[in-house]
Design a protein around this nucleic acid. Structure first.
Lengths: 112, 112
DNA sequence: TGATTAATTAACTAAATGGTATAATGTGCC
DNA sequence: GGCACATTATACCATTTAGTTAATTAATCA
């Protein structure tokens, strides 16, 4: 999986509120599928699918403990997302105004 | 639009490599649709749609200049993404190991 | 006015997504 | 073995997404 594909998977996994809520729960410690499903209206297979998406994106690691498959958060893809957004930090920290840039038709690089 | 919906829109807009490439281009300054489309194989309507997705997510602002519709990057949603990921920073900075947590069945909050 | 350029709209297709209900699998326990 | 529980697999449905080609709108320019 290329870096681009990793970001694709991470961003699209994060694009669903249920999946973000699952991650928030996992930030407090491992949990089983049933525990993760409990706060939601969705059916268990639906949650199971969400977990699979998170797992495919590398955001969740799973174990095996009798009939349970405990889930744990893995933050590596979040680090990748954070460093991707960091590329743009200089722009918002310099308070470049997008509307200004459009109105002035300014095409130069702000400064680099 | 709720905060959740803003994040949904931002994350799913960012989940496509073409759209991330468009943002990278816009980080260097405003550009027209044709300029943005130039590096890609895709047709112009395809790029037009990508821009629309970025615009709906608030990542791109548009102007009007004769027959051109210049696009500019707006980083606000990126700031939202960055502060969302920051919630998890303490986990990876503490080097909590997801696999360890799974194997030890540790369910306690790391520390808060 | 007519031609050219920039961009969008429309109509369509193929594939992915998110969800359901139900059936199947695996594990521990009596 | 047989029951109960946790989880996943299957099959199906509706919606969205990403892309195409062809037509259309809007503005400039000769």
């Amino acid at each position: 999986m290329t870096g681009d594909e990793q970001l694709d998977a991470a961003f699209s996994a994060l694009a669903h509120p249920t999946r973000r809520a699952i991650l928030a729960r996992l930030a407090k410690g491992t949990a089983t599928v049933n525990e993760l499903a409990e706060p939601f209206d969705a059916t268990l297979p639906a949650i199971s699918k969400h977990i699979r998406v998170l797992e495919a994106a590398g955001l969740v690691l799973r174990g095996k403990d009798a009939q349970f498959r405990p889930c744990a958060l893995d933050t590596k893809p979040l680090e990748a997302v954070a460093s991707w957004t960091d590329q743009y930090r200089f722009i918002w920290e310099a308070r470049f105004d997008a509307m200004d840039r459009i109105l002035n038709g300014m095409k130069e690089t702000p400064d680099e």
